[in-house]
Design a protein around this nucleic acid. Structure first.
Lengths: 197, 197, 197, 197
DNA sequence: GATGAATGAGCGTTCATTCAT
DNA sequence: AATGAATGAACGCTCATTCAT
């Protein structure tokens, strides 16, 4: 039942955005009364966190798939694949992305430990690959604080995604080109290729 | 009078965030009736755009100041100064920052040409310095699409700012370190220093 | 409960007219919160239609009663009775009358089929009696489009009622006399009596 | 100036209906401030009455024209012409018609003597022709209270016009046919033609 | 003759939430 | 496990009108 609610919330989210997701509409959508939802979620806030988890889980799937698709290749390739998957997910699931990384309900604590385990899991994927990169790369010796570095990469990818989703990019800039270039730069920043022009 | 409203809206914005800025509260805050606001702004949308412009203008001041403070220095330094100023502004004026770059009122078109002239002005500051960098840098010859490159840098800085402001950064990551490192990476990406460790 | 709302809306309607019937006032009048009304009616429009139906239903009762009171008499008498009942209802329930036949909310389509079944029912009463009249009358043979003819009669009765209710009749004209004469003329038009002076 | 306001109010009326005619919009439409209107009209009510007069005047023109077009013909023809003109005016100027004969601002007294002189003038046109009809007609001797009879005719014509304008006529009834038939019946009621089938 | 500034009251509607059943 | 009834607060916005200038 809990999952049926979440499923429907998910669908509404994707269809019409987070701003217009209300408990009443949600209740109506699943064909139960609004009160019923409160039997399964303490508050809208609670539901919000559940949605974040759902989104994180989906993102996790996407990222792991991307990694699996290039097992055995050199770390730079894997990093690129990871970044590409992240950005693609963000651009293709803007509503989810908003809940996960943009929306700021007043209640939201800074990264509540018990709620965002999967979020950290995703960050760890980046950290792991980054560690590999550090080992393989001879170009520049770097002492790595992998968690911080992973966060840096994440922030940069997040910058592109959120700017594009928020429709803040100048009309004259080609978005595909921008995204491609940005990802390339980010990857190159940590896993520089010799042939970078 | 128009400016008194904007001033107060500004203050409310900084205090309690964009989501909870309502015409009524604003009116109450300035001690006038709600109708009076509509005397000066056609709609909440209109007010929103005015706020964006105000924010852009302030950001513009900050950026120009930062540039002025290092006239004559080499382009890499100026780029660093610009980036640092941008991020600092974003972190110190989180609510303005949200209106300018995060908030997504349904009405917002992709970068409405007539409204965001100053926004483009700010972007141009980055573009100009980037062009200088391109000239001075011998390390790697790069054909520059300065507008796209400026947007890329902007996106990355925006990523850090918005992630931190949205309180999405893992508790265990030191924010000052993260910000400093990120900015350094971004700058180094376009204006690489030989001594980068 | 639904009916309690309608009852009160009815009373307000009769007291102060349709134009000044607002959801809030209605709520206050019944001693419930405004939201509660929305629990039972989707919108003001919905309520409007319910009121129309209620009015139509009452009118229907009145008309049927009038017919029942003269079963077995000749058709001309029955037509007269019907017309008289209609006009009397309209003059005695001016606010209901306005909702049913005058008020023009922007949403109103031309005679929405699914909503106004009872309205058509009332028209059919006229049509039926008219058909009888056509059979019995030998004075003038007329091919009858009963629906159109019923509508014509209705329109004429409506003209008197609405003009009087809208207070547009010249002060010097006696209203009772006007009404009586008008009804007589309308009846005579379709069921002419030989003795009409 | 007064007339410039009225002109604009007229245009707004025809364009967008009485319900949406507000002092503010009107002021905006004529390019003056709202306060200016209050220099020329004491209140919205005052303006309302002026509009009624304007409408009455236009209707008067139309009716007189219709009469002028058939000077010298027999009274039945003139009556028919008058009725036809009235109905046509009502159907073609629904917004004016509403202000003149339907709208019921709370303030409206029953036929305020000083305001509606022209309205009575229009009614007198009917009364005059009816008097002629009474003289010419030999079919049925009738003692005429011409004012009452004129009002009766007016009421019936008004019934058709207002019902059609309020969109209350059943979808399955052809409106042109209904109107034509109704007018014919009304005329025939007072000026019966021998050949009426 | 005209204005800008300002207002209080009201509009229909939506929100997250609670409570007795 | 689920419901129907109910709520107070808030939303953006429009209204006719007034007043000092």
């Amino acid at each position: 039942m809990r999952s049926r609610i979440l499923d429907s919330a998910t669908r509404m989210l994707v269809d019409s955005g987070y701003a217009s997701l209300s408990m009443r509409k949600l209740a109506q959508a699943i064909g139960y009364s609004a009160t019923t939802i409160y039997h399964h979620f303490d508050s809208k806030d609670d539901l919000f966190h559940a949605l974040v988890e759902e989104g994180m889980s989906r993102l996790s799937d996407v990222l792991r798939e991307a990694l699996a698709a290039c097992t055995g290749t050199e770390s730079g390739v894997r990093l690129r694949s990871l970044c590409h998957a992240y950005v693609t997910f963000g651009l293709q699931n803007p509503e989810y992305y908003e809940v996960m990384f943009v929306a700021a309900p007043p209640s939201l604590e800074r990264f509540p430990i018990d709620k965002y385990r999967r979020a950290r899991g995703n960050l760890d994927l980046f950290a792991t690959v980054l560690a590999d990169v550090a080992v393989e790369t001879k170009h520049r010796a770097r002492p790595l604080d992998t968690r911080r570095d992973a966060t840096t990469i994440w922030a940069m990818l997040h910058g592109i995604v959120s700017l594009v989703n928020a429709r803040r990019v100048d009309r004259r800039v080609d978005i595909d080109g921008l995204v491609g270039d940005s990802v390339a730069r980010v990857v190159d920043m940590y896993a520089p290729s010799d042939v970078m022009p």
